[in-house]
């Protein structure tokens, strides 16, 4: 998929992030094996993977800090290896480690960061004020950053990534440490930035949250990105649905009746939140609901037990080697 944007004088510049076949090893540890992904301008893409799957390594490469062993990366058409300066001018990066100059206030830190992007003192001061308001740091802006709480530092870190209004935004675990209100405003902010044409790549463990803001997801496991076919297969595979009824015993009876539960449905059990059933696909879920309602069960809640991203993620990470054989780039580990 190639996304292009037309700029001013008619030149066509590819925008967003394009990663093709990127591998990287640290000594004997293969951190990434042929990762491939695209983040078009104006969209939010979630980067999902278990701990140690290479998410941070990938983001470090996109942030011009690390060279890939093989493969190519393009940020708005520029190569971070050969032309890091161009990439840095258009890329904002929020690391997973919260670093801030401890004796400087949030305002001073943002102003200095602005000047590191070659703004004048005045421009940097104006931008710092905007970002302080945007990230809701007004009350803490003039305190030394060492007294800020984790969530406040997190917001300062986000503000710093936005100083030069980057067209490509890389966020490594941006939501950790944020309270629900701050999470909600982060979500709104990212949606707004994407609406303004920014390409956003977010890595997070909080999958339910990514579900709400991401247009697309990239699954990374063992340094490999899952192919679209795998994602589609995993997303369509059997998953748990939760059913809650006003009359639990009626539901139980109905589920025990042979005609109601189709061949593709398996009752898993009952927990505090309701009854869990495994349904092969959405069509059989619809059929099950239809049958339950026809049998007179007062259903008040009927839905997937886990979010889309989480379901796909769990399914992809389950019995990984067999499923991922098609994207293995390292022949030794091919089963």
């Amino acid at each position: 998929m190639s996304v292009t944007t037309v700029f001013g004088s008619g030149g066509i510049v590819p925008s967003g992030i394009a990663v093709t076949g990127v591998s990287r090893s640290f000594g004997s540890v293969l951190a990434l094996r042929g990762a491939t992904l695209t983040v078009p301008a104006g969209s939010v893409t979630a980067l999902i993977g278990p701990n140690g799957s290479g998410k941070t390594t990938l983001l470090l490469m996109l942030a011009t800090l690390l060279t890939p062993d093989t493969g190519t990366i393009r940020i708005n058409g520029h190569d971070p290896v050969t032309d890091p300066e161009r990439v840095r001018a258009v890329m904002g990066w929020m690391p997973d480690t919260l670093g801030s100059w401890p004796s400087l206030s949030a305002r001073a830190a943002l102003q200095i960061t602005g000047r590191m992007y070659r703004m004048t003192g005045e421009q940097a001061a104006v931008r710092a004020n905007e970002l302080i308001a945007l990230t809701d740091l007004v009350d803490f802006a003039d305190r030394p950053s060492r007294v800020l709480s984790r969530g406040q530092k997190q917001r300062l870190s986000l503000a710093r990534a936005l100083v030069h209004s980057p067209g490509v935004l890389l966020l490594d675990e941006p939501a950790s440490g944020l309270d629900p209100a701050a999470r909600a405003s982060l979500r709104q902010l990212l949606r707004r930035l994407a609406g303004e044409g920014t390409a956003v790549l977010v890595s997070s463990h909080v999958l339910a949250e990514l579900d709400e803001m991401a247009d697309a997801a990239v699954y990374l496991a063992d340094g490999r990105t899952a192919s679209p076919e795998q994602v589609a297969a995993a997303g369509a595979s059997a998953r748990s649905w939760r059913i809650r009824s006003l009359d639990e015993s009626a539901l139980e009876r109905a589920l025990a009746t042979p005609g109601v539960v189709g061949a593709l449905v398996l009752v898993l059990g009952v927990d505090q939140l309701g009854t869990l059933v495994q349904v092969e696909n959405e069509a059989s879920a619809a059929a099950l609901l239809h049958n339950l309602v026809l049998s007179g069960v007062p259903v008040c809640d009927f839905g997937p037990a886990v979010g889309n991203l989480e379901h796909t993620f769990l399914d992809l990470t389950r019995d990984r080697p067999a499923r991922h054989s098609s994207v293995v780039v390292n022949p030794e580990v091919t089963p």
Partner: peptide, 14 residues
């Protein structure tokens, strides 16, 4: 160690 090196290196500071 303090995490402020990389955030400087991703700016236009060489």
């Amino acid at each position: 160690d303090a995490g402020t090196l990389a955030t400087t290196q991703v700016t236009l500071i060489s």
